[in-house]
Design a protein around this nucleic acid. Sequence first.
DNA 1: GATGATTTGTACGTATGTATA
DNA 2: ATATACATACGTACAAATCAT
Lengths: 214, 214
Amino acid sequence: MSLADHVSAALEREIVLGDLAPGLHLDEGSLAARFGTSRTPVREALNRLAVCGLVELRPRRGAVVAGVSEEVMTQRFEALAGLEGLCAYYAALRMTAEERLALHDAHRRCRAPASAGDYLRYDAADMIFHRLILEGCRNDILIEQTLAVRRLLKPWRRLQFYSAGRIEASYGEHEAIVTAIRDGDSPQAERLTRAHVNHQGQAADRMVAAQSMP
Amino acid sequence: MSLADHVSAALEREIVLGDLAPGLHLDEGSLAARFGTSRTPVREALNRLAVCGLVELRPRRGAVVAGVSEEVMTQRFEALAGLEGLCAYYAALRMTAEERLALHDAHRRCRAPASAGDYLRYDAADMIFHRLILEGCRNDILIEQTLAVRRLLKPWRRLQFYSAGRIEASYGEHEAIVTAIRDGDSPQAERLTRAHVNHQGQAADRMVAAQSMP
DNA sequence: GATGATTTGTACGTATGTATA
DNA sequence: ATATACATACGTACAAATCAT
């Protein structure tokens, strides 16, 4: 792995996790010192991150961590809902019998954390559940695009579960999705999944609004 | 505009248009000589293109133009159909009255090239038509994602119009989409648009298959 | 399989443009 | 408003790895 790869991966992780606040000026010199490299690999990393939209690159003025307004977040959830819905549509058409069983199984494993109200474990089980649907769609570009938007929303996705009653609602929505996919009812699977992810966004929205109050 | 921007844009254009064949080795030194710069801006450009998936970057072995199999193309059209459908869905909900009129106007301007069988002019008018729908959805991320997939398909998109009867069919499909958006019937707009783009892909597929025959 | 040529990955110096006092 | 300080954009140099003979 080249130094540029390493720096790029490290910065991506910190930005996505929110360790590097939006608007923060990313100074090439300081970063180079921090990673113990010259400025060249740092520059390459910043270029790649700019393409992903994680940093903004202003010519002659350096790079800053890209800021995300609440409006942008709402739009991203809307796009994600559409994309995950599409994946569910094709998954309902193309999943093998084994995959449908595995999905049902993953759903069952959400039950215990849901009744216990265990945020972290439910979040983990929820991610596995959605990943199975993604992989069932048999379309690498669709998967890639969906994961890209999901990555951007990762810091906010977990917020939703702090919203009262969200976990129970989420679990119930999963149930209906599993049934639709089992029956191969692709339009229904798409509708339900789109609504499900939109609910996630609305719940996250509420938490952001609550946080910004003094 | 920095030199890296210029090199990046130029290479992107040539790759997307197919002037640089897939698998072609992109030599940093030669490119630098060609653009009259040092290798540094060329390296930055290659890094950016790699993130877009237009070139493959093999460590210590340089960059090659990324190849696209027919299967990948089919998947991309499928993803594009889903995305453009989503845009149409939200456009039907959110477009202003003026925008709906403008869309109708753009559709009218497809008529003459369609009856004349003028590929190039129809292609141009078609692009404007679809762009209006995109912009009407009021979701920058969705627009961005859609344009990204469209860029990847650009070289193949034009192929469809060489398929017999495709222009007439395309024009008819537009008609129905315009009506659905005018009436604010978002599910219908989405369904029709998705089918429309899927037809584009099938037509392009046929042409690729025809081309590969001896 | 070894050696030479080519090419990549990295470091660093310089000039130019931006921000600040 | 001018000048100063500073960070970026680009070029050049060199070492290490790959490839071609």
